[in-house]
Design a binder for these strands. Structure first.
Lengths: 324, 324
DNA sequence: CTGTTAGCGCGTTCAA
DNA sequence: TTGAACGCGCTAACAG
């Protein structure tokens, strides 16, 4: 207690709470601040939370922390949270390799609200959303009256890649799809199908794969060695899948992009680590984190949080080329 | 308040705290539990923390969340934390692109202890280590009387790679070193130097590089096009650097591993995404997280936490081959 | 075996 | 302008 610090106690609260407009004298304020500095005073968060009923902490639920995308979403959310005196704690959902089942057991900090990223709607039911303010990132926006959403223009991004391949003259395009049942991946498949149909090109042969390099390699081998004319382009749902596709091509003696073009999605660090560098679509991951946190903040303040949709940009690089 | 739930209040505390061995009757216990279920009762963490003076939460400080290694350390730490009713909150240190300066502002949950991973000793001074129990991961163990440490046998790992290249017949080995001033990287350089000297092989030409692919590529180009005989192997401090090295080789018209061998360190997902797959050293990331949390738990319980050193294993893959 | 009481550190309201 | 008193929800000690 900084009452040793000269004057009183409630005064301290006023000063450190910046609420002394016309209540405390300048001199006293300086005294309190000095004392607080000397004693290295730290307000007790637990007591403050108890009194205020709020913890100024948000929970970010992600399917898997090891995917670079979510680390960037976290960074974005943490940035704007910090600007408002909020904290963010991570909860890697059990759907991934996640350790715990209950966020209130794992990230046991008390929580004012939840931000869920790229989660299946039902996986979220497990979360203790007992009336907690909730914002959904990169999720199905079609729920009327549902929580506020911050979305990526995933469909448009996928359309851009498809068109890019089409423009390069490709007509036999295989789609390496992630077999993850979330909105973000369902939309990708739909967009590819629709865009191809609109161009009057035969529907893509589709192979599904788990989200890892080895599985993607196998899927791509299947796509490339299927009966009938060989695809000239492999359109992948994710950079990780694209990495597997490149390996598959090489294993079959095909060169990228000379014999087969490969495109990714996400623009992970991986995309430029590969050789040739991956044509892919950049996702504004930090930005979606920032918008998500802003929406949650709005919710907590009782303000409405209008839905947001963030644009994606195609990054043509060396892994795609004209059909020769 | 679950006192509406039948009996009393302190009784509830006992029941939910599993401390009613010979204090409360079976019947009452059932009544309390039923009521708690009906009312969807959630103990208030803030109040509990206030009363107990402990938050059962640990802070994990990492240099950068986007590096897959730290995500895995977190997963390990979170796993054992959860087993003990603890939570883990992440604090990406400002040294990286991190958002905030003060962990008590950013990850504002109150903290019982701190686990610092791969941090420079001085960067840690900024952390509010005001007498907080501290465990250091993958850090300089040479501080006597310092905090408990959990270390990786980094030197041994680096020795294994060096020996591997030596055994393959390489005599002109260039070292692509990360220019990050932390123990873990300093040790790598020392180990390479020592092992080469022990084998009576000329010291490695060394190029330093920031920890990203583009910088590594440039560094590797410098190493490969330096005056004098060209190195036949590129020994890299990290898989990311190795990815850059592979690109450099190819840009110079050299084949990996036929013309030049490349080795990495960390066994990231990247290592098997590349083609050829990277010879690298596997780091038991989850394991170091687990041991770190265990050590912190020991500290909090007043038990001593003996230093731990975890072994590393060499993973020979396709990016290294005999000198032809 | 069960209920009562006190106080953790803070913000706030009320009286001086 | 400031000090004193109350209560947030919980648990540990003690009284019944």
């Amino acid at each position: 207690m900084a009452r040793v610090a000269g004057v009183s106690q409630a005064t301290v609260s006023l000063v450190l709470g910046e609420k002394w407009r016309g209540r405390v004298s300048e001199r006293t304020v300086r005294a309190v601040r000095a004392a607080a500095g000397e004693l290295g005073y730290r307000p007790n968060l637990a007591a403050r939370s108890l009194r205020l009923g709020a913890t100024r902490t948000a929970l970010l639920v992600v399917p898997a922390l090891t995917h670079e995308y979510f680390a960037r979403v976290y960074a974005g959310a943490a940035k704007v949270a910090d600007e408002h005196g909020f904290g963010v704690v991570l909860y890697p959902s059990p759907a991934g390799i996640g350790p715990a089942r209950d966020p209130f057991g794992s990230a046991r900090a008390a929580i004012d609200g939840v931000i869920a990223s790229s989660m299946a709607a039902d996986a979220l039911a497990g979360i203790g959303d007992g009336g907690l303010p909730l914002v959904m990132l990169d999720s199905d926006p079609d729920i009327p009256g549902g929580p506020p959403t911050v979305n990526l223009a995933v469909a448009d991004g996928m359309r851009q890649v498809t068109r890019h391949l089409l423009d390069l003259g490709h007509r036999r395009i295989a789609h390496i799809a992630a077999d993850v049942d979330t909105w973000t991946f369902r939309v990708r498949t739909e967009a590819v199908t629709a865009e191809l149909a609109a161009a009057g090109v035969p529907a893509a042969a589709r192979q599904t794969s788990a989200l890892n390099v080895a599985a993607a390699r196998d899927a791509a081998v299947r796509a490339l060695s299927a009966p009938g004319p060989r695809p000239t382009a492999l359109l992948c749902d994710d950079d990780i899948l694209a990495a597997g596709a490149c390996k598959a091509a090489r294993a079959l003696g095909l060169r990228v992009p000379d014999d087969v073009s490969v495109s990714g999605f996400d623009d992970l660090a991986l995309a430029t680590a590969l050789d040739p560098e991956l044509t892919t679509v950049r996702l504004p991951a930090e930005s979606i984190g920032e918008h998500g946190m802003s929406a949650l903040l709005a919710l907590l303040a009782g303000r409405p949080a209008p839905p947001v949709e963030l644009p994606l940009t195609l990054l043509p690089r060396a892994s795609t080329a004209s059909r020769t």
